[in-house]
């Protein structure tokens, strides 16, 4: 399969997707009329103010939340089928490593659940720890690692399942900016190496522009898509790209989109 062909195979498709939470204070329209297609190999970011439904949308894709209206297919089937096929790896804002497991045992967790052989587990642990640059830390416990390293371990854990997609919910939100820059670079390298589809939630404009091939700008109350912005900065993206005119133009476009989306209901 050549690259152009790959970029146009849809893996996630939604049609008028809606989700309303019934709460004691009345209904919360977390998602409303979401029409979105994400193609294989894309890096798509959801950006928007907090409460605009980014997490909810990601959770619907992951079958952790059930939509109340509209359609969604993931890899041609329901999100549930995709989950049972282990089509995605999910990375949360907190690394959520088990404190009673060493790093290698943490990465083995999903593999044990899948019932893989010890040897297969060992191979995958080694491969994915190398991928996130953590070889040598197998026997360490989570508390012996920095926050950034813990988050890298949690990415390795998601990758070890060998999913087609990575779903990441503000994975670097709790880290300081220097660590964040570093992890952004690493994530891009990883994406280039593995060619996985990545759906990435963030509320940092530079992070979204730096990483994505497309940026979905969302707005709140009800949570909806305000605008989808192409982010064609090419495959080679050194950190310095953030000072180029092209980068700043796209960042400006995203900022305008966020501003317009927000003023909508004021």
């Amino acid at each position: 399969m050549n690259k152009t062909e790959k970029m146009t195979t849809p893996v996630i498709q939604t049609d008028k997707l809606s989700l309303t939470f019934e709460t004691n204070d009345g209904p919360v329209h977390a998602l409303s009329d979401i029409d979105l297609t994400i193609n294989e190999g894309e890096f798509v970011s959801f950006i928007g103010p907090s409460g605009c439904g980014k997490t909810t949308l990601l959770r619907v894709i992951a079958d952790l939340e059930q939509p109340t209206g509209g359609e969604i297919t993931v890899e041609g089937g329901t999100p549930r089928e995709a989950r049972l096929n282990r089509a995605y790896g999910y990375v949360f804002q907190a690394a959520g490593l088990y404190p009673w497991r060493t790093i290698e045992k943490n990465i083995a967790l999903p593999l044990e659940v899948m019932g893989l052989s010890k040897q297969e587990q060992q191979e995958r642990i080694a491969r994915n720890l190398a991928l996130v640059d953590l070889d040598g830390f197998e026997k360490k416990y989570p508390w012996q690692l920095s926050g950034g390293m813990q988050q890298r371990a949690s990415i390795a854990r998601a990758l070890a399942v060998e999913p087609d997609m990575l779903l990441m919910d503000e994975p670097f939100g709790a880290l300081d900016e220097i660590v964040r820059d570093h992890l952004n670079e690493q994530l891009l390298l990883l994406w280039a190496k593995t060619k996985k589809t990545v759906v990435f939630v963030t509320h940092s404009i530079p992070e979204a522009v730096f990483l994505s091939t497309r940026i979905v700008v969302m707005s709140p109350r009800p949570g909806r898509i305000h605008e989808i912005i192409d982010c064609d900065l090419g495959d080679e993206r050194p950190l310095e790209i953030r000072e180029t005119t092209k980068f700043l133009e796209i960042a400006h476009q995203v900022r305008e989109g966020l501003r317009l989306g927000h003023s909508y209901d004021e």
């Binding site: 952790l64 989950r83 999910y90 949360f92 959520g96 088990y98 009673w100 967790l109 044990e112 659940v113």
Partner: peptide, 27 residues
Amino acid sequence: IMQLDLMHTYNASKAQLFWKLRWPSSI
């Protein structure tokens, strides 16, 4: 909830959820 959701994404069985997450957490 995050830890439970994580096990859910792995499609872990009730027994796996118990032995791999609930039990060690409770020690």
